[in-house]
Design a protein around this nucleic acid. Structure first.
Lengths: 121, 121
DNA sequence: CTGGATCCTCTGCGATACTG
DNA sequence: CAGTATCGCAGAGGATCCAG
């Protein structure tokens, strides 16, 4: 929140661009984190994947994190969850158009990381 | 004797693309977090900024976090820190070419966030 | 096979105070 | 002005077991 002095000086012309509610920050909040980009990227490459296939494809992820992240992404409207009522259970995940629209961005991130040889810390 | 492609295809009998050491993950490790994208974006817009100007431009950041993130970004070769030996102290931050090359990516993220109206949670 | 439920660790981040 | 130094928390993420 703003205090009184801030409000009082608010009309002073700002010399510099502000960054409040920056859309980039919003983007990072939604798509960021340790696993979400990888999940999306795998679904871009493979179109449709089952829970277990994602699990095996992502090195080091736990089942808890995977299901949690999948739920988040589903709520964001980025991926579809299709469950078949069979035994054993079968669930397929795929991207929505909204999710697919992330491809160029993720691809640019990939290229940048490769080009700039971000050495393992 | 086997050539490299043979070995590669032998090993890739997996049906699905793997995600180990995904460059996207590396990207997120380096550029991700709550403040780094905003700092970079401000420096793209304003070219050169002083510590205090960044502080005032980024709503809610603490001095501790700001100096920490700036240090990280400097180590990554993304920004330059130029210190003038005067009193009171004066330090200017600006992007390196490597940092400037992030502009299209951040811009794409911004556009995506706007287009997809990621409602405040 | 696809998760949910617990419990635990670790660290990113925040609040505040202090300094050359 | 441009930072450090401390303290502390909440939440991200990990390990393991259990269930439909």
């Amino acid at each position: 929140m703003m205090n009184k002095e801030d409000i009082a000086t608010k009309k002073n012309e700002k010399k510099y661009q502000q960054a409040n509610e920056c859309p980039i920050t919003i983007f990072m909040e939604k798509i960021g984190g340790k696993w979400k980009p990888v999940i999306i990227w795998l679904l871009i490459l493979n179109k449709v994947m089952r829970f277990n296939e994602l699990d095996k494809s992502i090195d080091g992820i736990s089942q808890k994190m995977l299901s949690q992240q999948l739920k988040d992404l589903e709520q964001l409207g980025i991926l579809n969850r299709k469950s078949y009522p069979v035994i054993p259970p079968k669930v397929e995940y795929s991207l929505t158009p909204k999710g697919q629209s992330l491809e160029p961005i993720l691809d640019a991130m990939k290229t940048w990381a490769n080009d700039n040889v971000l050495y393992s810390k």
